[in-house]
Amino acid sequence: MKFEKEDLVKLYRNLVRTRAFDEAAVRWLAQGKLLAFYHPAQGGEAPGVGGCTFLRDDDIVYPHLRGHGLPHMIGKGISPKLYLAEHCGKATGAAGGMGGFHSVFPEKGALGAGGTIGSCFPVSVGWALAAKKNGRGQVVVCFFGDGSANRGTWHEAANMAALWKLPVVWVCENNGVAQFVPIEDAYPLEDLSNLASAFGMPAVVVDGQDVMAVAEAVTAAVERAREGKGPSFVECKTARFGPHGIGNPDKVHGKDRDPRQIEELKRRDPVALFRSRLLEQGVLTEEDAERISREAEAEVAETEAFIDQSPFPDDPGMLDRALYAE
């Protein structure tokens, strides 16, 4: 895919918006406004944003847990307003306040996200089988972390998808640490793209801090899937700047993560990297970049006002209506 200027600006804007909303989510959690818990995306925004921004509306995504799917949903063109109102438990949220951080926007191909890590794989195979059967050219893009692929669900789903040449792209957001467990304690592998080779799937490893590299790799894999050539695997080497979840200590082996290592990771901030590149290439001016940041902050403020004005759901009748279909 050849990216036009407007594509690059869109990609940058989605990256900036994701960072802004992610920072807001952390603030709102501290204020008691965002309910439940929060697992920030900071440092790991590029795989979701890069992998989703150029999908079709009817392509289906399974968001990864980082940022509770914010990078993926913003990439997919879903309103963070409806998503975050839901996460704040408001009746104006996408699921009427029933879902919390379980996000759903069927009209934009976000059909659900589970709480059990690794359950993304079997359901994605189901969506992909339906997509193959209906012949509309839909592709499923399943985002998951290095921890997720430790599950046996990966094996069953990857095999079935490859066997039946299903239109699914597996995007691994490998940030090198699953909660408190570093990857060297979880795999005897250097690259998780090796997980694809057993099933004869093509796999690439990309710099997951380079949003364009992600977008190019995922777009190529999506096109391949759309042509009926089956699944492929994109491993994005990415980063986690903070703890697994807000309130968790940022430790491995019971000890704080090395601050020098985190400083090292932060030198490759995906937002800053892309900004510099676009400035260098003359795609953006400093003024453009500042304007995009201001617009993102304004969108956050507008979203916050919307959430503040929204009521909590108060009709227990919802429970029955939601439990069984007619």
Partner: peptide, 23 residues
Amino acid sequence: DSPLSETAIAGVAVGASMLGYRP
């Protein structure tokens, strides 16, 4: 006929049913 993969079989039922099939 599927491979011996109950988890994926059940995943197919869930996923395909959400897209209008009756698996």
